[in-house]
Structures are given as structure tokens and as C-alpha cells.
Design a protein around this nucleic acid. Structure first.
Lengths: 127, 127
DNA sequence: CGGTATCCATTGCGATACTG
DNA sequence: CAGTATCGCAATGGATACCG
């Protein structure tokens, strides 16, 4: 109806397209939570772990490195002893986070519909 | 600055939350492309395969079933012989697709920044 | 504290063969 | 045509141990 949302070029979503690769690197399993948790206040590595209890150390490190490489978070080393490391979201990361919030709002709005659809589907499968 | 985008409740993104589970089921590797390809015109199973060459038969079937179960696409069986099956996006699926387009626009806008960030990161790693 | 290195179980997914 | 079934490999990611 409104066509402010229309690019929809399927080519950009193909697995080898750079646009798609970026989405994969930045919307993966843990990135959503890291981005959202980091939004507003910077956190240290272990603080972040506590905020996201389900993530393993290895995965969190990998996620942070990937987000840093893509310019979504900034890694700040504070040279105390032992070292402290602070992660903070970048302006670009913030714009991404707004879209993540939009996704979250979408789930909130549509979850009831979805659950009805699931119930119908599972019921039809039974017979 | 504008707070029309602010729910940002981290709990909703936790791995076990229903909101998060929905996102996972509907934004996975192949769903984005299927949704986008189906947007506008319904397609048959093999037409869809041709539109998304990289997807295997098994994965496409699984993706379509999942999307159907969540009410994002509708599966219409046309009783010819041999049978024809048509997949079409639902109104709910359409609202999701608009968000996918927003993500795509985001990558288009930010890809230059991202590539600079990557170059800087990779360069710093070298030394 | 903030990681890296290693091992190992699970999962994802393509290729292939077969069916109503 | 539109799937289902089975196999096998590669990658994901958790658990654990160790380090500057």
C-alpha cells in the first residue's frame, strides 16, 4: 500500500551477496542479545556474560570480535592490572539496534496470531 | 533521540523466550529469501527452487513447512495430476517482509561504513 | 580479568536415491 | 511434480583447561 518499503531486490538476499553476508554476521544467534544488552551502557566482558547467562565464553568472544570487525561495537582496553576491557555500541550499531527493536515489536504484536497458526497446523498434522 | 523505538527488553531476546524463538524460526538462513521471493506472486515448489538456486530440496521443504506452521506462508494444493502445490505469502508474512526490506535497506546504507571498519580491523590485526 | 587452545557432541545441510 | 528417507561430512558451539 505505501511503497516507502519496496526495494525487495531478491538478489541482495542471495547467500553470496555482501548485503546478506553482513546480515548473517550481525544478526546471528548471540549478536542480537549483545547489541541489545550493550545498548545505552557500555559493559565489561564478564558483566556481559552475566547479562546473557546462556552464552559460552568462546561464543561471546567470537560474537564480540565479529561485531567489532563490522563496526557495530567498540572494544576499549583500560590498562589497569589486571586489564579491564569495555565494550560499547557504536552509532552504526545503534541504528541496527533500532531495527532489532522493530523486529521485537513485530513479534510482540504477532505472537498471538502465530500461536493460533501453530495450533491449527499441529492439529491438522495429527489426523 | 526519538523514543518511538525503545522497548528493548533484553528478556524478550533470551534464547528461551517465545519472542526469540519466533524470530529464529522465521529469520533463519533460507526464510528471508523465501519470504522475499514469494512476496507479491505465489510460486510452485520447483519454481521457488529455481528462484533460489542455492537451496537444497530438503532445506526448502523444511523452511516452507516452518513458515507455514508459523502462519507466514500458505500452502495450496491444486489437485491436478500430477499434483501442483502453490505457496503464497500471508498478510502476516507480508508485515514481516517489510521488516526484512528495512534490514536490506539498512545494509545498503551502511555497507560502505562496514567495509571501512573491516579494513581497519584487519589491518590492525596484521601488525 | 579477559581471554586462547583443545576436545568433543550435536546439528545443519547437501547429495543421492526413491515414491505417490 | 512435490516431496520423503538415508547417508555422511563440515561447521557450530558447549565444556574444560590453561595463560598473560
Amino acid at each position: 500500500m505505501n511503497d516507502t518499503t519496496s526495494p525487495s531486490d531478491p538478489a541482495l538476499l542471495q547467500v553470496d551477496a555482501p548485503h546478506r553476508e553482513l546480515l548473517d554476521q550481525v544478526l546471528d544467534k548471540w549478536s542480537l542479545q549483545v547489541l541489545d544488552t550493550l545498548c545505552g551502557r557500555p559493559l565489561r566482558f564478564n558483566e556481559l556474560r552475566r547479562e546473557i547467562p546462556a552464552v559460552g565464553q568462546k561464543s561471546l568472544t567470537a560474537t564480540l570480535r565479529r561485531l567489532e570487525r563490522n563496526g557495530m561495537v567498540e572494544r576499549v582496553v583500560i590498562a589497569t592490572r589486571p586489564v579491564a576491557v569495555e565494550y560499547r555500541i557504536t552509532p552504526t550499531g545503534d541504528t541496527l539496534n533500532e531495527l532489532v527493536d522493530a523486529l521485537l515489536r513485530w513479534t510482540t504484536v504477532n505472537l498471538p496470531d502465530v500461536e493460533r497458526a501453530r495450533a491449527r497446523f499441529d492439529d491438522d498434522e495429527r489426523r
